[in-house]
Design a protein around this nucleic acid. Structure first.
Length: 536
RNA sequence: GCGGGCGUAGUUCAGUGGUAGAACGUCAGCCUUCCAAGCUGAAUGUCGCCGGUUCGAGUCCGGUCGCCCGCUCCA
């Protein structure tokens, strides 16, 4: 009955957490299940169980509230303006033409049957004996790789000498994709082998899921499930500007599902084929791109800290120039906010990308759609005779903080997972109270002597005040220790226990999840205590 | 897509070609005044799935699906 303020234990290093145990706990306690499990599952898809759905919702709500409903103050000292949209998963296919996904998501790949190597076909070139006659041998090399090129040339010359084929014209370099595969496939030698004919024909790996709109299902009816939510924002830019009285700088936010037919889904929910994104496309004048980029990068980083991810497991990584995506080449930069997952540790995996997409997307859609996607700023431009600025048309620059909700949820799960051999449960989930699926639990110490009745009353009060934020548990079954242990694995931060003393002095025990310590407080103060901890 | 490993109860795992098992968890009852206590009982399995060999397959063989690891990939 003491209030022994036990110190909060230090976080467990990511390298000491077992992903297998985390996956197993997620299954056992109803956080995450394999999708379609009773039919043998489906590669790259996961379902959230009751606790997982609540956890994910809490993370989504936290993002929504902090980014959209009560956004931060910007670098200009003014409150940031963000408006939401909710766009369709299926759009006119021209959207993906303009965005570059139809081209960019179609990387033809080539496999070598001999060496098991795989190459991007557009990264390969060939050398052959030139001229108009059919080549006897075509040697392939990797673009930009001098060693690979030299090897291909050496091999070709050796072969031609050996076969006594006269070299009438200089060796000819060609694009790998330009050959008639039926005719020349058998004489192509891969970059890492001496045997001809081991390369497969280039096959396209289309990362977009394809479907058909309407009943005909012809090639004219092809549509795609969106591979990112961002384009749904860009194509609504004009509608938002025309209807919402917004002025640049402002942002449009969206949370929603996106789909990518990943070659190799891996690492639990980290790379799945159906996933949820939380994105802001922030529009600003190109002159201010740099400062807004830095602002969002740093503020998003701080946000992930605020939901409980610790500094040692979070880092900001600026992309190198050669790493930049096509849409970000002209921008001020791209950063990844990365988390040290147990399966990447000691390395990190991407949680959120913050990119300066420059004017790429709006320009692309303006060209493709022939709609004017620019903004008229009346406060810019040269000063007219009347002393007022003439105004200026410009294509806004886009800063994009794009976060993965499933990855965020996984990071929160991994961060929370805390092995503790001293506890009956051997492990507890240290969720930030704001994210915890179960906010509080009320237990009568024993199921008699009027304790259940008092507990039920407290439970009802907590439910009325906090039920919209998460579950409030009530349990009278079995021993108190077992009930605490269950709450440890579910990550419930506070348990309130009604005992014999409660009936006489109106005090209850608050059992703290992280320290397993107990503190007595008046039953009337319980709600305020919880409100304080939940930051509401 | 390639190579390796693994699929048996909710979980972790035993299981020699011959009746489907354990521990923990779950549920019910009793008991219990603070950390998975105890007692009594119960439910839970197409042994991932499909086929083959066999008198007989969880066990052997083939295929397939899924998970993990390494490649490859991740505009």
């Amino acid at each position: 009955m003491t209030s022994a303020a036990a110190p909060t234990p230090p976080p467990t290093p990511a390298t000491e957490k077992s992903m297998e145990e985390i996956v197993s706990l997620c299954k056992r306690r109803g956080f995450i299940f394999p999708a379609s499990e009773i039919y043998g599952g489906i590669n790259g898809f996961w379902d959230y169980g009751p606790l997982g759905a609540a956890l994910k919702r809490n993370l989504r709500e936290a993002w929504w509230r902090d980014c959209v409903m009560t956004p931060p103050t910007g670098p200009d000292g003014k409150p940031v303006r963000i408006v939401p949209v909710d766009s369709c998963i299926i759009q006119n296919p021209r959207v993906w033409q303009a965005s570059g996904h139809v081209g960019g998501f179609n990387d033809p790949m080539v496999d070598c049957k001999e060496t098991k190597a795989r190459y991007r076909a557009d990264h390969l070139s060939t050398v052959s004996n030139g001229g108009d006659f059919d080549p006897d041998r075509i040697c392939v090399f990797i673009n930009g790789d001098d060693k690979s090129r030299k090897r291909a040339v050496d091999r070709l010359e050796k072969h031609l000498r050996y076969e006594n084929v006269p070299i009438n014209t200089p060796l000819r370099r060609s694009d790998f994709l330009s050959f008639d595969w039926n005719k020349f496939g058998a004489c192509i030698v891969g970059p890492d082998t001496d045997k001809p004919g081991t390369l497969t024909e280039a096959r396209a790996f289309n990362l977009m899921f394809k479907t058909y709109v309407g009943a005909n299902a012809t090639e004219d009816d092809v549509a795609y499930l969106r591979p990112e939510t961002a384009q749904g924002i860009f194509i609504n830019f004009k509608n938002v500007v025309d209807t919402m009285r917004v002025k640049v700088p402002f942002g449009i936010a969206q949370v929603g599902k996106a789909f990518r037919n990943e070659v190799t889904p891996r690492n639990f929910t980290f790379r799945s084929r159906e996933f949820e994104q939380m994105e802001i496309e922030f529009f600003c004048h190109p002159d201010q791109a740099k400062e807004w980029y830095i602002f969002w990068r740093d503020w998003r980083m701080a946000w992930w800290h605020s939901v409980g991810l610790t500094s040692e497991n979070l880092r900001l990584r600026e992309h190198d120039c050669d790493e930049l995506a096509h849409y970000a080449k002209a921008g001020a930069g791209t950063s990844d906010i990365e988390y040290r997952f147990p399966f990447t540790a000691p390395d990190f995996g991407e949680l959120e990308g913050v990119a300066d997409r420059s004017t790429y997307d709006l320009t692309q859609h303006e060209t493709e759609s022939k709609s004017k996607l620019q903004f008229f700023d009346q406060e810019r431009g040269e000063i007219a005779k009347n002393g007022q600025p003439k105004g200026e048309w410009f294509t806004p620059n886009v800063i994009e903080p794009s976060a993965g909700l499933d990855r965020g949820t996984l990071a929160v799960l991994c961060e929370a997972f805390t092995p503790d051999p001293e506890r009956p449960s051997k492990v507890f989930m240290r969720f930030h109270p704001r994210l915890a699926p179960i906010k509080a639990a009320v237990f009568p110490l024993v199921n008699k002597d009027g304790m259940p009745e008092v507990a039920e009353k407290l439970h009802a009060e907590l439910l009325a005040r906090f039920g919209h934020l998460g579950a409030i548990e009530f349990d009278v079954k079995q021993s108190i220790g077992k009930r605490y242990a269950r709450m440890d694995e579910a990550g419930c931060p506070f348990c309130f226990t009604i005992d014999g003393d409660t009936l006489t002095d109106q005090t209850v025990t608050m059992r703290d999840r992280d320290t397993a310590s107990q503190e007595r407080m008046n039953i009337d103060n319980v709600c305020d205590f919880v409100a304080d901890k939940l930051q509401v």
